[in-house]
Design a protein around this nucleic acid. Structure first.
Length: 910
DNA sequence: CTCTCCCGCCACCCG
DNA sequence: CGGGTGGCGGGAGAG
């Protein structure tokens, strides 16, 4: 048997485990094959006994409770991680194809998988390769199958801010197959998303993806409705009463007469009508309406915290159901479902409130709070705490970061988040105390981020924002993108964030997540983001400060998982697209809503061509899913049909979208855009963090320094040196297996003062670095030799290239931002994200950058490496999902996803 | 034990 | 009618 298996496997995967394996994966050659074979081959036998396969998790998360160990598990654990294994993981994380494939494996062979996994492991053992670990898809734990995680994966498939020009349709079947879940689950997600207008139903089994463009507006509307409904009063009422389920007193409703009719209207307020579908049946709306109401509760709440029981009671009351216990239970279940999705959207986070009766599950709004035009509903913690947090926390974080950096080259954002959390908790104004271990300090950060965000927005979107939001072109989002550089301006350590972060508009950083999810694309609000937000207030780059870029494997693992579906376009395509976008943006030149909000807007922020690019940053969904839209239609997509006030929404959103980015971009360019990344990445982190699950932990160790960017180290006459911090060739460029690993790769960047200057790269530049450089779009102003292909990376930057065209045009309102350094770095880094993700040559390596205060080069490559390695081993478990037990049809659909992948490569630089 | 919430039956609705 | 939807709540994992 074993032999047979081996043979089969070999056939399937001719390549040897290890690098070969990785490489092949890169070519999605076998995705389907493997998948199919496995399912067929899989001896349906054995190991079903194991109820849960935690093997993977265990591996990654030591602390996990030992749940019934399975033989397999034990074996796996015993197996030492080999470089190849690591590589494999990295690759899988970085390569959409691989991820996809693996996912499929896991998904499609849920139970059978075990068997497969087992066999695989055995085979591997025989072979002697530990790489197999990857294969062993642990039986997904309950958490892994959670709706939240699923939602994160779902969200990871689509750009948070899709270009107005492209329509993305969601095929429920395809998604279900792709995510390896039953369609029923997708309905749950979609219904909630629909309630927020992130999607709309287009036809049977088809939904249109709108993204978050109109989210602010939607929230505003919900807030208004909530106020009208006097939800606040109701909440207060229930909160006070602390009724037991048994004691509901529904008699005292405060509703004015709104009731059902009103409820029905909820979705309508700005909801686009679905062209092809008839109005939703009332019944259908249930979950959607419930979701909207739930959100409304948060929006009208002063504390922004809503306990489930109160929410359930209010909902029951409104529904006029008889308040029985079972109803309550059911309601709570639904609320959890909704909450999971909202959490994935980084709109809320789980917390607990302690009341007389004890601790109660609750959720706290961490989404945007400023969407309320004009009104300051701003609430709670944020406002009051902000100043202090800024000062104190910031300082703490700095210290922490420094220490960390000194030690590991990175610091765990968690620490910072904890501090922040404490701070927040201590906030007297809040009636509720979040319990310290409950969940999520990371989340806290998210809320913080929201606060800052708000502040930022209020102030000027331009400057701070700009720095932050340097939106990398869409490519940056790509999993494969070489260096989505995450930057942390300040001392904050940036935790690697998931892709979505990138796509997320600055203002919505909060939302993010990926996340979750990478495993979650999580949802992604991350503490990091919070930090970044804070940071954003400051100039992104300070002259003279050394920067450390930290590509983290974990980051990209997360990123990868989140990004599964993302595809990138070729640079040329982007360019063309950008032009389109621009045109579109220009069309809708109405002032963006945001603008209104921000009084201090800077002139420079006005529309700029650059903006377009920003807007483009949105990742593309899977190709198959993305349908090019006619230019004329561009706006339509966003809101197929907006009714009433909503009508203008899409445009506004679009504009906003475009404008903001532009402003940001400009600034970013002036400064170093790339550095902004920190915020982006956050989301993923958050999601993970939020999830208590151990799996996340791997991600918790955010940054691994692989590269160090040292500004003008002594003796370098102002030259900046980019050193590879990591010795792991694998880590660096999994996809580009050919890249030679260099022991001491380095890149010398010209000092700002020199202006345009050729970039010098050590021949031995490690793959990652080179890839990063290579990331620069060919078409872009900068010309870099593409590293890949094994040849030494030769980077040449033409003088002209050094300065971003846009930047030149940009008014230099912010001197700080425009510091010389920024100029110097920005061109290179900012562009880095451009690389095509799919290109085999470049492995996407998200990079997070940490700015050190003054120390020239506090971190040694070695130390960095060390950290990296640790993290490295802790890769987050694969999304491994659930299994499709009996879904044959799904399989047939799989192909679609596969196709998607295939298409992606088009963008290749080559 | 409680909290969560996955799972999937089965009713409803639509074409 | 058949297939898409999704309400609903049993029951089990997680803590």
């Amino acid at each position: 048997m074993e032999v047979n298996c081996l043979t089969l496997k070999d056939l399937i995967n001719p390549r040897q485990p290890g690098l070969d394996f990785a490489i092949e994966d890169g070519e999605n050659a076998q995705k389907e094959n493997i998948f199919v074979d496995r399912s067929r081959m899989a001896p349906k036998t054995p190991i079903k006994s194991e109820p849960i396969d935690l093997s993977k998790q265990k591996i990654f998360t030591p602390e996990r409770n030992p749940i019934t160990p399975v033989k397999l598990v034990d074996r796996q654990q015993a197996e030492p991680w080999t470089p190849t294994a690591n590589l494999k993981i990295l690759i899988s994380a970085a390569s959409p194809d691989i991820r996809d494939r693996e996912k499929k494996k896991g998904l499609f062979r849920p139970i059978e998988n075990k068997d497969d996994a087992f066999t695989d492991s055995l085979q591997l053992d025989v072979v002697g390769d530990s790489a197999v670990d990857e294969f062993e898809k642990q039986r997904p734990s309950r958490k892994q199958k959670s709706l939240g995680l699923l939602c994160q994966k779902f969200l990871a498939r689509y750009p948070s801010y899709p270009l107005s020009t492209e329509k993305t349709t969601i095929s429920l079947d395809e998604v279900a197959v792709s995510l390896g879940v039953e369609r029923r689950r997708i309905y749950d997600i979609v219904n909630v998303l629909e309630s927020l207008h992130l999607v709309s139903r287009v036809a049977k089994n088809q939904y249109g993806w709108h993204g978050r463009h109109s989210l602010p507006k939607t929230l505003r509307n919900l807030q208004r409705l909530g106020e009208e409904q006097k939800y606040e009063e109701q909440m207060a009422h229930f909160q006070q009463k602390e009724l037991d389920l048994m004691d509901y007193k529904f008699g005292e409703r405060k509703k004015d007469g709104y009731s059902d009719s009103q409820d029905q209207q909820l979705l309508d307020f700005s909801e686009p009508d679905y062209p092809s579908s008839s109005a939703n049946s009332r019944k259908d709306k249930s979950l959607r309406i419930m979701s909207q109401k739930f959100v409304m509760l948060f929006l009208v709440s002063k504390t922004k915290i809503v306990t489930l029981d109160v929410a359930a009671k209010i909902l029951i009351e409104e529904s006029q159901d008889t308040p029985d216990h079972s109803k309550f239970k059911t309601k709570v279940r639904r609320l959890y479902d909704i909450a999971n999705v909202l959490t994935s959207l980084a709109l809320i986070k789980k917390v607990h409130v302690t009341e007389e009766r004890g601790r109660k599950p609750a959720f706290k709004w961490i989404g945007p709070v400023d969407f309320s035009s004009g009104d300051e509903e701003r609430v709670d913690v944020s406002a009051s705490v902000l100043p202090e947090l800024k000062r104190e926390t910031y300082g703490q974080i700095q210290v922490c970061a420094k220490q960390r950096l000194a030690r590991h080259g990175s610091f765990n954002t968690v620490e910072a988040s904890e501090r922040i959390q404490r701070k927040v908790n201590s906030e007297p104004s809040s009636p509720y105390r979040e319990e310290p271990g409950s969940g999520g300090y990371s989340l806290e950060i998210g809320s913080l981020a929201a606060v800052y965000r708000q502040k930022i927005e209020d102030n000027s979107q331009g400057k701070s924002f700009a720095s932050k939001k340097v939106t990398p072109p869409s490519s940056s989002l790509d999993p494969a993108a070489p260096f989505p550089v995450l930057s942390v301006d300040s001392e904050y350590c940036v935790s690697p964030l998931a892709h979505q972060v990138f796509s997320v508009a600055q203002r919505d950083l909060q939302a993010f997540s990926v996340q979750n999810g990478l495993n979650g694309p999580a949802g992604v609000v991350s503490r990091a983001s919070a930090a970044s937000d804070v940071e954003s207030l400051k100039p992104a780059l300070l002259a003279g400060q050394p920067m450390v870029y930290v590509p983290s494997t974990s980051l990209f693992m997360l990123y990868g998982s989140l990004q599964e579906g993302l595809s990138s376009e070729s640079a040329s395509e982007r360019d063309s697209r950008s032009s389109e976008v621009t045109a579109a943006a220009e069309q809708s030149s109405t002032p963006s809503v945001q603008k209104r909000l921000s009084e201090e807007r800077k002139p420079q922020e006005e529309e700029e061509p650059a903006t377009k690019r920003q807007s483009r940053d949105c990742e593309d969904g899977p190709l198959s899913l993305v349908m090019p839209k006619k230019p004329s239609d561009s706006t339509d997509m966003a809101s197929p049909k907006t009714v009433g006030n909503g009508g203008s929404v899409p445009l506004e959103d679009i504009q906003r979208n475009g404008q903001l980015p532009a402003g940001k971009e400009v600034l970013g360019k002036a400064t170093a855009n790339c550095f902004v990344s920190s915020e982006w990445g956050n989301p993923s982190r958050n999601s993970e963090i939020e999830k208590p699950s151990k799996e996340n932990e791997s991600t918790k160790e955010p940054s691994l320094l692989q590269y160090l960017y040292v500004q003008s180290p002594a003796g370098f006459n102002g030259f900046n040196v980019l050193l590879s911090g990591s010795q792991h060739p694998h880590a660096v460029g999994p996809s580009s297996g050919q890249l030679p690993s260099l022991s001491v790769p380095c890149m010398v960047l010209p000092p700002p003062t020199l202006g345009p200057f050729p970039v010098l790269c050590s021949p031995t530049m490690p793959g990652p670095v080179s890839s990063a450089l290579g990331a620069l779009p060919n078409s872009g102003p900068m010309n870099f030799g593409l590293p890949g292909l094994g040849s030494t990376a030769h980077l040449l930057i033409s003088p002209a290239a050094m300065v971003n065209p846009n930047s030149s045009t940009l008014p230099s309102t912010d001197p700080q931002l425009q510091g010389p350094h920024s100029l110097n770095l920005s061109p290179v880094m900012s562009r880095s994200h451009i690389i095509q993700p799919e290109s085999p040559v470049y492995g996407g390596h998200p990079v997070s950058a940490v700015k050190l205060q003054q120390s020239p080069a506090p971190v040694t490559p070695k130390s960095i490496r060390r950290t990296h390695r640790e993290t490295f081993f802790k890769t987050p478990g694969s999304l491994g999902d659930p299994v499709l037990r009996r879904r044959e049809r799904n399989q047939s659909r799989n192909t679609s996803s596969a196709q998607r992948r295939l298409e992606i490569p088009s963008g290749g630089a080559d």
